[in-house]
Design a protein around this nucleic acid. Structure first.
Length: 299
DNA sequence: AAATCCACCAACCGCTATAAT
DNA sequence: CATTATAGCGGTTGGTGGATT
């Protein structure tokens, strides 16, 4: 049969961790490194299940955890990525070194989402008109406007993608690409971005690394005190540098990924798509929606 | 000063994919 | 190959502390 149980449910402590428990866990990991979470609690003398230990370590005790408020640059990254990917907290965490998925998720739910909701009614999106008038978005701050625009774009993209997938299924002809980014890039959303890119005739910098990356996170060893880190990090961007502007500046400080991706062609196309989609064209962030009226039309 | 409300966040829960037996 | 545990992820909950009434 399969493996033995990870922990018997009885006699397992739950709830907040005490400093003593934290100390036991940290000491054990510093001494033995990361290995089997299943056996860790017993070996470390903890009355916790392995899952709880893993969460405590990854979300709180890891030495590379960055505490404190999110910088504007980090905020912008989250908004960008959420606009693109939705609730992919783990992926966002991989792009924000020192931040955990849990932290990002909490930050989104308690700050960004609220802000988005609060300014929601103020939005005046002129979709009824078939004219080429740009969407009229009224928001207090550029960052908020930015966020709303990305959310709008994401909702549109999702709607269109689901519609497309329905159509594809009904036709049973074309195979949908397994990669969501490539799907998105191949959709009109990506098309609209490409048009703008060409119009502008410039290659804008992206907050997302040019280094090939994959959603399937490859392990990478961080230069840290505790040896084998349970790193979910693949390609990381150093956003520790405070960036006052809302817009994303080019970031040269990119860590090297130790594990290369096997299928580079696929990964590259995915990354290019993601990179380009995360780049804002021109001055008006959502200009392409107004210009490309077919964006709102079904295929 | 007490009660209530609210925001924040750590931790848990449940699900899925993958790995081990 | 089937079964089961593990790891990882996203959603949700509950405790805590500060603000407000």
């Amino acid at each position: 049969m399969g493996r033995g149980p990870c922990c018997d449910k009885d006699g397992v402590k739950k709830g907040p961790w005490t400093p003593e428990e934290d100390q036991l866990l940290v000491q054990y990991i510093q001494k033995h490194g990361l290995g089997c979470w299943r056996s860790l609690p017993k070996n470390a003398g903890l009355l916790r299940c392995g899952k709880s230990c893993r969460l405590r370590w990854t979300n709180y005790l890891r030495p590379d955890i960055k505490r404190g408020p999110f910088s504007p640059a980090e905020e912008a990254t989250i908004v960008h990525l959420h606009g693109m990917l939705g609730n992919k907290w783990a992926y966002m965490a991989s792009q924000l070194p020192g931040r955990t998925d849990n932290e990002i998720k909490n930050f989104w739910n308690t700050h960004l989402k609220k802000r988005l909701t609060s300014i929601g009614p103020k939005l005046q999106i002129n979709q009824s008109s078939s004219s080429s008038e740009p969407i009229n978005i009224k928001c207090e701050s550029p960052s908020t406007r930015h966020m709303v625009q990305w959310e709008s774009a994401r909702v549109e993209a999702e709607a269109r993608l689901s519609m497309q997938s329905l159509l594809l299924k009904s036709k049973s002809t074309a195979k949908s690409h397994p990669d969501i980014f490539l799907q998105l890039w191949k959709s009109e959303v990506g098309e609209a971005f490409r048009i703008i890119e060409e119009k502008d005739g410039k290659t804008s910098e992206s907050i997302v690394s040019d280094t090939p990356l994959s959603i399937k996170n490859e392990p990478v060893l961080l230069d840290d005190t505790v040896t084998p880190m349970p790193s979910k990090t693949t390609t990381v961007i150093d956003t520790t540098q405070e960036q006052e502007e809302d817009t994303c500046k080019p970031n040269e400080d990119v860590m090297t990924v130790s594990g290369s991706i096997g299928s580079n062609e696929f990964a590259d196309s995915t990354d290019t798509a993601l990179k380009l989609l995360l780049d804002f064209p021109g001055g008006n962030d959502m200009e392409f929606i107004g210009e490309e009226s077919e964006f709102f039309q079904l295929p």
